[in-house]
């Protein structure tokens, strides 16, 4: 797919996945993730984009095809659609978890935990329990937990889908700021055209059943702010992405 300038961080080659129910989630999917990019997988629900993300994360094995990592598999962070926090553990303990599972004591992990909390702006809430937080704050905790291992690549599976628009906009901006600060590669799954255009440096549009990439859109905008949201480029790219998405739906209708 396309001519690559830089070597890929990870490449999916002819990846297919059929579920036990017989649903063909992915069919012959080819996908590159390049270092430092913000890649969005955009598509209708049930088009296999989440499956692709899970395969990259190693949560699921492809039935055929390969997942090739550049040199060694880098540190991964994964954010689920729901915050997926342990309700019985404080915010701090939730963020500690990835390090705890690797045998680090809380004292050893202290610095990292505080860093992660500061990155998502929740330094004051370390002792709170998930149930005491709003939906947006829980999502921040979830992101902080993914960041605590300092991942080179961050995978997010429709993380803001359940949040109200204002919270979502704010978290979008926070995510962009985080990427800049951490110089991480991000793969983001969404079904929102506006969200994908606002965030991404590159968008891969998925078709429905079986899932594969039908179109690739590069979003070449240096700054992302409210001005960008009002710009002509933003509008055009959204139209382009919407049209691609509609074609994806159309294909589904034809099958």
């Amino acid at each position: 797919m396309g001519a690559d300038m830089s070597p890929s961080l990870v490449t999916l080659r002819a990846v297919s996945k059929t579920f036990q129910t017989g649903t063909r989630a992915l069919d012959n999917l080819n996908l590159d993730v390049r270092p430092g990019e913000f890649l969005t997988l955009l598509g209708p629900s049930g088009c296999g984009k989440s499956t692709a993300l899970r395969i990259i994360a190693g949560l699921m094995a492809p039935m055929s095809g390969q997942v090739e990592w550049g040199c060694v598999k880098p540190e991964l962070g994964f954010v689920f659609q729901d915050p997926t926090l342990m309700p019985w553990a404080s915010v701090e303990d939730n963020i500690w978890l990835p390090l705890r599972l690797r045998g680090q004591s809380k004292a050893q992990a202290r610095k990292r935990i505080d860093e992660a909390l500061a990155l998502v702006g929740l330094s004051r809430f370390g002792g709170a329990f998930p149930r005491e937080l709003s939906g947006g704050m829980k999502m921040r905790v979830s992101i902080a937990r993914a960041l605590v291992t300092r991942p080179a690549i961050l995978l997010l599976d429709e993380p803001f889908a359940a949040l109200d628009e204002i919270t979502r906009f704010r978290l979008n901006d926070d995510l962009l700021a985080l990427q800049k600060e951490l110089a991480a590669t991000i793969v983001f799954v969404t079904h929102s055209v506006f969200e994908s255009v606002y965030l991404s440096s590159r968008i891969c549009v998925f078709t429905n059943r079986p899932g594969r990439v039908t179109q690739e859109i590069v979003v070449d905008a240096p700054t992302r702010d409210s001005d960008f949201r009002a710009s002509a480029l933003f509008g055009q790219t959204c139209q382009q992405a919407s049209a691609a998405l509609e074609r994806a739906y159309g294909l589904e209708g034809a099958i």
């Binding site: 949560l59 994964f78 689920f80 729901d82 978890l97």
Partner: peptide, 26 residues
């Protein structure tokens, strides 16, 4: 929570860790 189980797997949790830190509290 299925997702929590996957999260534990993602970070390479042992069976014992999964039991002690996830299943028993849940």
């Amino acid at each position: 929570d299925r997702n929590l189980v996957e999260l534990y797997e993602l970070y390479g949790a042992s069976r014992w860790q999964q039991l002690r830190l996830l299943r028993l509290p849940a």
